[in-house]
């Protein structure tokens, strides 16, 4: 798999999975306005995922046959490619198995309660903001266009989750305790944002990718400032769990995919 395809899929999978998690709140939000806010943001993520999956599918379709023999482990999508068919964004989203998903672990973590949902979004939205700001300078014109477009939407997300962090942290004793717990529990999944592997390094060297350690400095500053305003403790530096970008996931992703992909797996190529 080319570094560009892997990079595109990682971004697309992040967007799809966080979008799916937020959409699980639909009809369960604490108040109507927040229910609508979550589904609005889920829709933004889904739209970004769609642009990126279209780009991924285009890359696969343009590859020479020999290069696309073993792109994915699952036969549902690899079979389509083997038959010589063109794949599209839906195939990439619905027909890959868990191993082929390369989203970071944070986005697949369950909603649990309002505090976990907010903390997860806060960490991710803050990262996304600085990441897409940098990705706008990518030499890859599709990635830079997606970044430019997405950044405007991410601004709303970042503001929303940041305000909620402050509201909960600086709120009641109950809300403070619960958001602090969520911050502590999710902290170990934030290291993966910034861990450069071969794909990241190659993309950066080519002028297509983002310098993650540079984003890390901005992210840490921003997160520390908001946590302070929210009267919350910044968790100590410690062990960081990674693996998602390489396709090694927590047990939660399987359940997400089982629900997300059910229709296409049960009724292959079904349209409505």
């Amino acid at each position: 798999m080319t570094p560009l395809l892997k990079y595109t899929l990682r971004l697309a999978d992040n967007a799809l999975i966080i979008g799916h998690r937020l959409s699980e709140w639909c009809g369960h939000g604490p108040v109507l306005e927040q229910d609508i806010a979550l589904t609005n943001m889920a829709l933004d993520h889904l739209g970004q995922a769609r642009s990126l999956y279209q780009y991924a599918a285009e890359q696969v379709n343009n590859m020479p046959a020999a290069e696309k023999k073993n792109l994915f482990t699952g036969d549902a999508i690899q079979g389509l490619i083997r038959e010589g068919g063109m794949i599209d964004e839906d195939n990439v989203a619905y027909l890959r198995d868990g191993w082929d998903f390369c989203n970071i672990l944070l986005v697949e973590q369950p909603n649990n309660d309002w505090a976990y949902t907010i903390a997860r979004s806060f960490f991710y939205d803050t990262f996304n903001y600085f990441f897409y700001t940098e990705l706008r300078n990518s030499k890859d014109t599709t990635l830079s266009a997606v970044a430019e477009k997405s950044l405007k939407e991410v601004l709303y997300h970042k503001r929303w989750s940041g305000e909620w962090m402050i509201r909960l942290g600086d709120g009641t004793e109950e809300s403070h305790t619960r958001i602090q717990q969520a911050v502590n529990d999710l902290w170990m999944y934030t290291g993966e944002f910034f861990k450069m592997d071969e794909v990241d390094t190659t993309m950066l060297q080519n002028g297509d990718g983002v310098d993650l350690p540079a984003v890390k400095m901005q992210w840490e500053q921003r997160v520390a400032a908001i946590l302070e305003e929210a009267t919350l403790q910044l968790p100590p530096t410690g062990w960081m769990q990674d693996g998602g970008k390489q396709g090694v996931h927590t047990e939660h992703l399987g359940y997400v995919l089982a629900e997300l992909q059910f229709m296409q797996r049960a009724y292959p190529r079904h349209v409505w």
């Binding site: 306005e33 806010a37 609005n40």
Partner: peptide, 9 residues
């Protein structure tokens, strides 16, 4: 402002 998010994006 009631909410930054409404019936459409």
């Amino acid at each position: 402002l009631v909410s930054n998010f409404g019936p459409t994006s």
